[in-house]
């Protein structure tokens, strides 16, 4: 350690926000959004899981970024290992092909989105995703509605997912109730110049985001790491979300 200098930490969030700004200056089809998750830095805190729920006002059973936990080794050498799993935003997304009504598609910037107003809720995409990154909205709320009125954060506060302001009506079939749902890379935040919520909140600094097509972007730097790993590479889905193991 260089004692004439202090380490105050590198603000990767600000670096990535600058990357994001540059990307937004380009036409949408020139952006290649990608996310990297450094498994060495992930501490299994679930901050990302919860921030995603809060950001998108997700109901029970709908989860975009669960974090799996695994015990490796045996006492006294046992350790925990985690794997946060947002949508892989596959370049060859099996979920898109199967949709009978083209309610889900891959945007030119690579984000796979769902039009909740077109989705018929057949759940074919859900069974087709090899990462189980899609969940179905059963129309429930966190509050036990048989005993209490719905709370403001779940029925009054709209979500802004996909840039659409939408209020939830529990027990109804008003979208997004009755739809397949998935991580959008927080596209509404991106367009507003903000990083995805899970990236911002990651207390381990383990989540990276940016435009792969920009060689100056941090994400592009990471994509060249020998530690890069893709989930289920053999399926040919070409995930945009990758891991550093």
């Amino acid at each position: 350690m260089n004692r004439t200098d202090a380490n105050i930490g590198e603000n990767i969030l600000e670096r990535m926000r600058a990357d994001l700004k540059r990307a937004l200056d380009k036409p949408v089809e020139d952006r290649r959004w990608a996310m990297a998750i450094d498994l060495e830095k992930c501490v299994g805190c679930n901050a990302c899981t919860v921030s995603c729920i809060a950001e998108n006002a997700l109901p029970p059973g709908v989860v975009y970024r669960p974090v799996t936990e695994e015990v490796v080794g045996e006492y006294p050498h046992a350790r925990l290992r985690w794997l946060p799993r947002p949508c892989m935003q596959c370049e060859e997304p099996p979920c898109v092909n199967v949709c009978p009504v083209s309610a889900t598609w891959r945007r030119p910037d690579g984000i796979v989105v769902i039009d909740y107003d077109a989705c018929i809720g057949c759940r074919y995409c859900i069974v087709s995703c090899p990462y189980q990154a899609r969940t179905f909205d059963f129309g429930e709320e966190h509050t036990d509605l048989s005993a209490h009125p719905g709370q403001p954060y779940e029925i009054h506060r709209p979500a802004f997912e996909n840039g659409v302001e939408r209020q939830r009506i529990p027990h109804s079939d008003k979208s997004p109730v009755g739809n397949a749902r998935k991580c959008t890379y927080c596209v509404n935040r991106l367009e507003a110049g903000m990083l995805p919520s899970c990236t911002n909140t990651c207390i381990g600094g383990a989540t990276y985001f940016g435009d792969l097509s920009d060689s100056h972007a941090l994400i592009a730097e990471l994509a060249g790491s020998p530690r890069v790993m893709h989930l289920k590479e053999e399926l040919g889905t070409s995930p945009r979300t990758f891991y550093l193991s």
């Binding site: 926000r17 919860v50 809060a54 507003a192 909140t201």
Partner: peptide, 13 residues
Amino acid sequence: ALVDGKLCPKGQA
């Protein structure tokens, strides 16, 4: 306003 800091899951909940 464009920058969200990190926060543990309890804080967010």
